[in-house]
Amino acid sequence: MIATLVIAAFMILAMAGAIYAALVPHTLHCIIGLGLTLFGVAGIYLYLGSPFVAAMQILIYIGGISVAMVFALMLSVSLAKKMKHSEIKVILSSIAAILFLAVMARLIMTTEFPLREEPAGAAAWGVEQIGHGFLTTYSPLFIGLAICLSVAIIAAVLVARREADKS
């Protein structure tokens, strides 16, 4: 019972944060909305039995990505100003998104998913299993991810550096 209430609270937090981020006219508030959503999503992961992924979500997403976004915001001062907020565009895109939502929701509700007899227990998927999976079956993913991250860092450094010769 309590578990249900808690997960419901996390879900509402995630949805409310997302909707707030989508509609609010201030960039910083938008990032805060994203932060709330990310936190709610971490709670959902916890309920779905993977504390490790939840921890990563908080560490990398909230601790890394959101903070980097706020930094970028601070570095470019004009961003902190209120942005040009066109009501019409927001309304039009909301209508489009709600249409998409309605169609997909109907599809999801009418589809019968091949449910497992019993949801996977927490014992089946500890950190050990994840590590084992990464190093055996999914080794290309592990290698690829490592390459991707190093490429991203090199690229980001090279791009953002100031030009050596302005001539």
Partner: peptide, 21 residues
Amino acid sequence: LITLYLALELSAFPVYALIVL
């Protein structure tokens, strides 16, 4: 599927950086 997604991103990142240069 996920290897495919990863490869898609890996091939895209360097190109993003190149256009800025």
